[in-house]
Nucleic acid binder design. Sequence first.
DNA 1: CATCAGCGCTCATACGTATGAGCACCTCCT
DNA 2: AGGAGGTGCTCATACGTATGAGCGCTGATG
Lengths: 354, 354
Amino acid sequence: MTARRRGKAPSQADVARLAGVSQSAVSRVISGNAATARIPEETRQRVFEAVRELGYVANPAARAMRKQRNNLLGVHTFERVFPHAHEDFYFAFLLGIEERAEETGFDLVLFTSTGSGGSAGQGGTRGERKIYKDGTNRLNLADGSILLGVSTDRGELARLWYEGYPFVHIGRREVPGAEIPQIIPDYRTASARIVERLSELGHRRLGYVREWMEMEPYEDRRTGYAEAVGRLGLTDTSPGFHGTHGIESAWLDEVARGAVTAVVVESVRLAESLREQLAARGRKIPDDVSVAVLEAAPADLSGQWDSLVIPRTEIGRIAVDRLQTMLDDPDQRTGSLFVPCPLIPGTTVTEVRE
Amino acid sequence: MTARRRGKAPSQADVARLAGVSQSAVSRVISGNAATARIPEETRQRVFEAVRELGYVANPAARAMRKQRNNLLGVHTFERVFPHAHEDFYFAFLLGIEERAEETGFDLVLFTSTGSGGSAGQGGTRGERKIYKDGTNRLNLADGSILLGVSTDRGELARLWYEGYPFVHIGRREVPGAEIPQIIPDYRTASARIVERLSELGHRRLGYVREWMEMEPYEDRRTGYAEAVGRLGLTDTSPGFHGTHGIESAWLDEVARGAVTAVVVESVRLAESLREQLAARGRKIPDDVSVAVLEAAPADLSGQWDSLVIPRTEIGRIAVDRLQTMLDDPDQRTGSLFVPCPLIPGTTVTEVRE
DNA sequence: CATCAGCGCTCATACGTATGAGCACCTCCT
DNA sequence: AGGAGGTGCTCATACGTATGAGCGCTGATG
């Protein structure tokens, strides 16, 4: 048995010829719902027979063109997926997306092609991936897409939105004039809850250490923190709270002197640094200062710092579901979802001791 | 600016109307090569103007139907991708595939849908993914596909091959009557080289411990090992060499007595077990017995055992390239590629000491 | 015996793009 | 002046599927 030549896959017309019916009859048998198509069992059998005989398989491109559905969900990341996956950055999101896509019978397109095109090029632009390459919008291939990535190009997002393409963005990203549906880890509430907990443990004078980035996710953390500090009547005079990023040594001296009993830090990286510099001043965490972190470490690194955790897998699943509702009902094009971030206990926060 | 209603994306016809030319002119301007299409600059500009005005983007489905290319590469795994990725099973392959796909301007489709279909089902068959669901072959959506997975369904492979669908299988997998292009880690040569090295180090009496699986990859290791043992006139009377899997304690006693100076083991798992059982008999690796392993541990676990390493990322890249040549020239439908597996030195093989 | 409903299909068309063939016009050469 | 050859397009069609409209037939009903 030698393989059939490629390029002449049998069509419904071929099947029809063999079964002695019309192409449309074949179409109805194969994919038409039995209700509208009044085709008796005997004919159906003949058609299926012919299908098997010829090894007919539907052409998805044609089908996609005719219906407006492809059963394809796109995933666009603005940077490479897998390298980051290795660092657990995208990985857990993809896990959830894949799970849910499988459960709902969708396939996944990973948009990996860069804007630079070129068939034999030696690698595209290393950093960024564009949605629009020359005139064409690759995402269109999928019924809808999930977008993720830190360096999101807001212009492209705006255009995509304006064109009415169904998509969901993981993470908050404001684009003026476009109400993009987003799946947003609720950093704000989580940050506030961390402050509440510190307050319950007796801490009244806090400090805040911020990252250098100014993206929405950090804004949310800062908003939640500030709001809770205000509401609970706590004190924060740290430079981080008022706009400076990183750790100032003058302020550290104050902390060492006991001016502050708890510090909230935006990242593990900074928290580690804080620990070192406090140690250099003879202060220990949590004995002298409690520290909480506003970033989920990958699962295996956790258990150390008290922190919030980003439920990435769940967010992936939610993104798929949100997208599906958009597809089912085009009126649902707008509206974001907040996903609560649980706090995980560590060993760096204790009751205040004075 | 409110978003355009979904469902009526502008077509080339719309652009043509606006630019005052025919649809075919638009097509030629946009995608026709300039050589055959004799369209002056002025007209081109008018068309591009209209394109921008309307926000036209090409419809990939229609394009795919007309040409026979999609610029889509499929990846089908017979089990879930990402969970395994986490265990570094598929991960490195995907890394290479994605890299190379990006470099050559292709997008990736991950075929995640199970055979069980169903739009709202509560998850398909947990284990296996089928290629053919009811009558349709999802893979057809992509120009060609890369298949991988341990529980490959040979029947589906045969059918796919027979239909002339372009695909590549990662790992050796024999299917009677179908010469499936495969990217094969050259376990055979690598195993032989390990034996050669042991021989160079003075080992003449070897032992072999086999896994319970009977798949091609293990066959290759066994063949390479046996061939080298024969060629170099070495001795192996171990049960593993003659068909038994696992570790027999009677044989272990012999090893402990010094009947064997080096053992080749099919997996780290078994090697660990071997170490324990030798330790129980007062024998140490490598002081009393040298041990080499025929399986690459994930990069971070390595450095311990002397073993061969599977160049997974490279294999992924090669698979993409192999597929591309098939697509460019349908006559290249057959022919597999062997990829050499380097040996990495560890601390478990030394010169023989007697 | 005329009417009518249902059955089992077929016909025709649309989806959006790409492309071979060809048409009308112009320029240049003999 | 008449033809050759080039330019700047248009026409028509094909790709494979899905679907609304409709046609001829049969059997039942009035």
